[in-house]
Amino acid sequence: MPIGVIINSIAVLFGGIIGAFLGNRVPGRIRTSLPLIFGVASMSMGITTIVQMHTLPAVILAVIVGTAIGELIQFEKGIEIWANKARGPVEKLFSSKAGIENPKEFMDQFVGIVILFCASGTGVFGALQSGMTGDHTILLTKSILDFFTAGIFAAALGYMVAAIFIPQFIVLLILFFAASFIMPLTTPAMLADFTACGGILMLATGFRICGIQSFPIGNMLPAMVIVMPLSWIWITYCKF
């Protein structure tokens, strides 16, 4: 039973709804400054996980090749198209407008938090661990953090943040059921490189949320798929 996945997604849903509902009541300076704090927090979490890296060449190669693949298939463009299509109906449903009206600023922050909720190393590893061992501790802990994170971002971005629970639930549920097939094929070194790759994405996400540099986070996601195979290949065949 994917208890951790369900609770994590519900936390994002209710955190987003509550944050969006309180959005107009939260002072503008708070709605502007707190996302910057979460951007810094994302960078900090990224740095913390990057230091767990085992095979630097494999991880860097995964990020480069994965980003190239993402650029070719325009993965982030798909996220933006989905977000733009869903934004109107969601805001109409709740009869509200997001605090951020600038489309580019809105999309930069929205894509960033989609990655935070759906593709962070903590969430992916937590879903895999939950599916393999039945231990939901990581996802339950992440649920607490995601509840407040969703609330803060929703105060600025509106009810669209709550809608992120849908792709998050799908991604984590797939990982949960795939865990029994994936985990036996992994090694501690492969998991460390996987976590470090997620950390690089989270670091780039922090830069994007803070408006320092708009990294193509969505297009970097394929790196998460290929990093463990590349890690295994490098460890097995490239012993210099």
Score class of each variant (00 low, 15 high):
154 A>C: 04
117 F>N: 11
91 E>R: 10
103 P>M: 08
126 G>Q: 09
169 F>P: 01
177 F>H: 08
92 K>V: 10
189 A>D: 08
145 L>K: 14
113 I>H: 00
184 P>C: 03
164 I>H: 08
176 F>V: 03
141 T>A: 06
177 F>Y: 11
164 I>M: 04
166 I>S: 14
186 T>S: 07
131 G>L: 07
191 L>I: 13
160 M>D: 15
96 S>E: 12
141 T>N: 09
137 T>P: 09
151 G>M: 02
85 K>G: 06
94 F>N: 08
159 Y>T: 00
151 G>H: 05
112 G>N: 07
180 S>P: 13
161 V>G: 02
192 A>H: 07
154 A>L: 05
194 F>Q: 02
104 K>F: 11
144 I>A: 11
84 N>R: 14
169 F>Y: 06
132 M>Y: 13
165 F>T: 05
192 A>Q: 07
151 G>W: 15
97 K>V: 03
182 I>K: 07
112 G>I: 04
88 G>C: 14
141 T>C: 14
148 F>V: 14
162 A>W: 03
162 A>N: 01
137 T>L: 13
131 G>F: 14
149 T>H: 06
108 D>S: 07
130 S>Y: 09
148 F>M: 12
95 S>A: 08
136 H>V: 01
191 L>P: 00
148 F>S: 08
150 A>D: 01
126 G>Y: 13
104 K>C: 02
99 G>E: 02
191 L>F: 11
105 E>A: 14
121 G>P: 00
103 P>L: 07
138 I>Y: 12
133 T>A: 06
119 A>C: 13
168 Q>T: 10
174 I>N: 01
172 L>K: 12
139 L>I: 08
164 I>N: 05
146 D>W: 02
136 H>M: 04
87 R>P: 00
188 P>Q: 08
182 I>C: 04
112 G>M: 05
96 S>T: 12
160 M>H: 09
124 V>G: 04
181 F>Y: 14
187 T>R: 13
167 P>W: 10
187 T>C: 06
146 D>M: 00
190 M>P: 09
184 P>S: 03
116 L>D: 07
104 K>R: 13
94 F>T: 01
147 F>I: 00
114 V>A: 08
133 T>S: 13
124 V>T: 09
161 V>T: 09
119 A>H: 14
170 I>C: 02
118 C>H: 12
145 L>W: 12
137 T>Y: 11
172 L>S: 06
173 L>Y: 07
119 A>W: 10
160 M>L: 15
182 I>M: 05
109 Q>L: 05
162 A>T: 02
121 G>Q: 08
96 S>A: 09
148 F>W: 12
168 Q>S: 15
139 L>S: 04
150 A>N: 00
97 K>H: 15
85 K>Y: 11
144 I>Q: 04
153 F>Y: 11
194 F>S: 03
155 A>C: 03
155 A>R: 03
118 C>V: 12
86 A>N: 12
186 T>G: 07
125 F>Q: 01
169 F>N: 03
